[in-house]
Simulated scan of single mutants.
Amino acid sequence: MKKILLLGIGVLLFVSCKKEEKIEPTTVETGISGMFITDSTSTLNWTGSKQTGKHSGTIKIKTGGFTVENGKITDGKFTIDMNSISVDDLEGDDKINLEEHLKGTKPDVVDHFFNVVKYPEATFIVTGFMNENGSDMLEGDLTIKDKTNKVKFAVSLTEADGFVTMSSPEFKIDRTQWGVNYGSKSIFSDLGDKFINDDIALQINMKAKK
């Protein structure tokens, strides 16, 4: 069984974010090589927060694949199914209402967040793989609502029986960089304490096969 473990601990931000956080060292045990196609169970975990609490859930990675050469990710592209946005910390009508709000599937909330009717998919295209301060980082272009920004985050890969699992520690993005402005006090000055934080925390849980 080949195994490569690239551990990145700590919260990483988009290049456009205002703060830089410490990146802990990673270790590489041995190499992985090959082309891998994502499994239908792959997800992107998300957490959004506001002053009074937070909500979390998943989004499905619809399709994708990536290439690894001697433990380095050399290319890859992934399509994210925005219609699959799920809220996992609520039940019943509360769950349904928040999911519809995030997706924009009610007439009065169409473009509050992700407007999945007009923008049913998001994409991530790998543009680089490097080591920074001892951590192995995956860099790429993330497109949401037809807006593209570069992102960078730590990844870990493990391989067993022909499968590779790609995961990341939690990292944050500033949603307003993609025009997701609803409830943002950096966009609207009259919200008082009824704002939603600009940062969304993400965490990758992807399984792929040769």
Rank of each mutant, 00 (worst) to 15 (best):
Q51S: 10
G8A: 12
Q177M: 13
I61Y: 11
W46H: 07
D198V: 05
L13A: 07
F171A: 02
G128T: 01
K19E: 15
V28Y: 12
K118S: 13
T67W: 09
I173Q: 02
F188N: 05
N205Y: 04
V180C: 06
D81N: 14
D141K: 15
N45C: 04
S42P: 03
Q203W: 07
L6K: 02
I61S: 01
S189I: 11
K145G: 01
L102H: 06
G10A: 11
S56L: 13
F114W: 13
I125P: 00
K145F: 09
D193M: 14
D94F: 15
F171V: 03
T79Q: 11
K54P: 00
T148Q: 08
G31F: 10
V155K: 01
T158F: 14
G183S: 11
T165G: 00
K118M: 13
V28W: 08
L5V: 15
E121H: 06
F153D: 02
A154R: 01
S186L: 15
S186V: 12
C17H: 13
I37L: 09
G10L: 07
S184C: 09
I4G: 05
F195R: 05
G134F: 04
D141H: 13
S186T: 15
G183R: 08
K77H: 08
F14R: 11
Q51A: 13
F163L: 09
K22Y: 11
F171E: 03
M1P: 08
D81G: 07
K72D: 00
G71F: 06
E29V: 04
T165A: 12
E99N: 07
S42A: 08
K106Y: 11
G104I: 09
I173G: 05
K194Y: 14
G192C: 09
V155P: 02
I200W: 07
Q203R: 15
M82A: 04
M137R: 09
A208F: 03
S33Q: 08
G57L: 05
N149C: 00
L142R: 02
T79L: 11
D93P: 00
N181C: 09
V116I: 15
F66P: 00
T79S: 13
D94M: 12
P25R: 01
N181H: 13
D161K: 07
T74G: 04
L138F: 01
K50S: 08
G134K: 02
T47I: 12
A122H: 03
F129E: 01
K185V: 06
A122R: 01
Q177P: 00
A122K: 03
W178K: 07
E69K: 02
K185E: 14
K62Y: 10
V151R: 02
G183N: 10
S16I: 10
D199Q: 15
G34E: 08
E91S: 13
G192T: 11
K19H: 14
V117G: 00
D198P: 03
G64E: 01
G140H: 06
V68S: 01
L13C: 10
Q51E: 11
E170V: 06
S156A: 10
